[in-house]
Design a binder for these strands. Structure first.
Lengths: 347, 347
DNA sequence: GTGAAAGCGCTAACAC
DNA sequence: GTGTTAGCGCTTTCAC
């Protein structure tokens, strides 16, 4: 019952011309090389028969599938869907579809998935993973496959990357806390095998120097995952250490949320006693009390930008026209989880 | 610089056999028809050269692309990512990749996207949209393309569908409210052009009958979108009508969240004065106070089930082996937003 | 058990 | 301006 598709051959038979003529008539650029009358007759027949081009066949011939691969750690992480919509918003109108794969931040899975995408002949890959280094994607790029990375860069490679200005985000946030009078500021760092975790810790250290604040390694707790449980654990560790602090700058929102919860468990009020800040500005944040002060990143734009650069690569634009580095601005969003420094936690 | 791929021909040249022999040696089922020695020599050469099959070419020949299409309304809606992971969890190990498209619940976009998927030769489509009817997907199915729908059924079609037992969810929730002593129970209904909105309203009406509660049309407010703003507006309308109620059963979590917020604006405490319930049990719900009592649906399982049924269809299983209807169980999750009925709101 | 040959649907040289 | 031809990389029928 699987109905057979209408092919160029069917239209050729119907209109009495050769397949190649049909092919040309239906190709917007080649169409001008065909008598208008014939072209429109062909077009009419195609419409009447309900012709749909077989992109598989075209792809085999042209080596362009009009498909791109998008690699992300995990689609259930709320920061990625907006990025995907951003990518789609530029690629889809141009006729591209995307194959999205989840790496779960596992190295071997990641390189397997690169192969999966290449086997399917994707015209390019947008790689929004968070692993710090990744040979397979670099190899693909070196072999000539258009690749751009999002959120991180691959060292020693010619792969264009789009990142958020995390340094600025962390620095502005630290400045915000300093301006509120905080001096003993803890940092709840993310996993150090993820680029975001590592970058933000480095940014925190640099920002402290910039702002003439003392960097206190003993006030840094490192999470093993970017989730609420680890945020809570970080606070517990900090509290258990007996150190004193009036603010906690967290490497992402979920750590911050866990931190606030754990502080509450210990009878410590945020923001009255301890200020807490996040990073990412994930959805639904304004429904959670206290509303979190955080760093907003431009997820949708990041996706759009990545797609735009990938297009340039796929179009074979001149190397000098392709931006190797794009740093997107971030902004801090001050809500309710930060307040002027009050009495120190514990004595 | 785009490196040329290794093809069967290269391996054939390398090993001194014919391409068709190489093809057979590399095909797990055909391999047995080849002398083991030759087969392993070919395998070795393939590995050495780093051969990767070109699925585009194979697809053109076999009419199977090992790619499925997945249509959802909007990936940024948190209920969909888990469904996608569920789908992926069964399809990916079998070598399938998926092309995900967002319909934005627009009819014309939806039918265009069906074509986009078919042009790419997907082997099947999982359609998790929420529009009530949709001719294009029905047509595709009628023409023999394997299709299954998630969350809704297409009337008068032979398309297998997977739905959640929403009737039971609404009924259990209403029972929960009744058991807490509530009698004047409002319903914040979802958009009536979406199947979930319509189904849940019908379920509410039926459940009222089942539980011997009066169904009060004047206590039903209908949202235009499934979001917090509309939840708030629904409550405003209900309050403005001067009607009295002690509980609000909402058609989804976001409406419920907006409702609770708006009640608070009016100085009405949830759950002390009015109980509010949601539907979906979306992520992060346990971070929002009061923690919402809601209906949990099995998103991951729904995806897995849809993928499994699609596989049966794609494998050409006998019709009687393919479940036309799968109703997944739901469970109510009682948290903090419901409490015994107290004094009525307003007098 | 292996080779030869055809062909999936399309595009792109080249011919006329 | 249109037809002819070849071929993308693979699978599969048919020989031997």
């Amino acid at each position: 019952m699987r109905q057979k598709r209408i092919t160029l051959k069917d239209i050729a038979r119907e209109t009495g011309v050769h397949v190649s003529t049909v092919s040309r008539a239906l190709d917007p650029v080649e169409r001008k090389s065909i008598t208008e009358e014939v072209a429109s007759r062909i077009q009419a027949a195609a419409d009447a028969l309900g012709y749909r081009p077989n992109r598989i066949a075209a792809g085999l011939r042209t080596n362009r599938t009009m498909t791109v691969g998008v690699m992300i750690p995990d689609i259930t992480n709320v920061i990625f869907p907006p990025i995907l919509r951003g990518i789609e918003s530029v690629l889809e109108p141009l006729g591209y579809a995307s194959i999205i794969v989840n790496t779960d931040s596992e190295r071997d899975r990641e390189s397997r998935l690169v192969d999966v995408l290449r086997d399917r002949g994707v015209d390019g890959i947008i790689h929004a993973a968070v692993l710090r280094s990744d040979p397979s994607i670099a190899r693909a790029a070196a072999e000539g496959l258009p690749v751009v990375t999002l959120n991180r860069m691959v060292e020693n490679s010619q792969i264009p990357y789009i990142i958020n200005d995390e340094d600025a985000g962390i620095c502005e946030m630290l400045r915000h806390l300093r301006d509120l009078g905080h001096r003993d500021i803890a940092h709840l760092a993310g996993p150090q095998d993820l680029s975001t975790g590592q970058l933000r810790l480095a940014a925190f250290r640099n920002a402290a120097a910039t702002l003439s604040l003392e960097f206190r390694p003993d006030l840094v707790a490192t999470a093993r995952r970017f989730d609420e449980q680890e945020g809570a654990r970080g606070i517990r560790d900090l509290l258990a250490s007996g150190r004193t602090f009036t603010a906690v700058l967290c490497a992402n929102d979920r750590l911050a949320l866990g931190a606030i919860d754990e502080l509450r468990e210990h009878g410590i009020d945020c923001p009255r006693e301890v200020s807490v800040t996040g990073f990412n500005d994930m959805p639904f944040l304004d429904l959670i009390r206290p509303r979190l002060t955080t760093v907003r990143i431009l997820q949708h734009s990041a996706g759009q930008t990545a797609a735009t650069v990938l297009l340039q690569l796929m179009n074979g634009d001149k190397a000098e026209d392709i931006p190797m580095e794009t740093i997107l601005p971030v902004e801090i969003v001050v809500r309710e989880s930060t307040a002027p420094a009050g009495s120190l936690v514990r004595s």
